[in-house]
Nucleic acid binder design. Structure first.
Length: 128
DNA sequence: ATTCTAACA
DNA sequence: TGTTAGGA
């Protein structure tokens, strides 16, 4: 359930193909990029290379424009979506394990209560 | 033949 | 946004 997204992310289309796929002029496609609405890759010769996801985004941009949303508005929409996606990712990218929680709580107790030593004098703070 | 950047009779 | 000049 991963190779699909990877393929859609592969930048293999030159601007000429994207023009035909989206019915947009090269001028418009480059302008939207300048506005931060799409970020195609560049090949060795500085040529823009688009992925299928880029094409979908371009098509989406065209729809927003038809619905009267200006470039700045579309930009704001994508910026907020990116922020929301980043937040969701940060929350699950490295979820705290039980061991992490125990270690954190133990450090806190030691810090305020001085429970760092046991009767036999050995330090039993062993993170699980 | 294609695409790129910069600029505007 | 269109178009064109001058390069790569």
């Amino acid at each position: 359930m991963k190779g699909k997204e990877l393929r859609r992310s592969l930048a293999v289309l030159p601007i000429g193909t994207v023009m035909k796929l989206t019915s947009l002029t090269a001028r418009q496609i480059r302008y939207y990029e300048a506005q931060g609405l799409v970020t195609p890759q560049r090949n060795d010769g500085n040529r823009r290379m688009y992925s299928l996801n880029d094409v979908d985004r371009l098509l989406e941009i065209k729809d927003y424009l038809d619905d009267g949303v200006n470039v700045a508005g579309i930009k704001a929409i994508y910026d907020q979506q990116a922020k929301a996606a980043a937040a969701r990712k940060a929350a699950q990218e490295r979820p705290l394990t039980d061991a992490d929680v125990r270690r954190i709580l133990q450090d806190e107790f030691i810090r305020q209560g001085g429970l760092g030593h046991t009767p036999n004098g050995l330090d039993q703070r062993r993170p699980l």
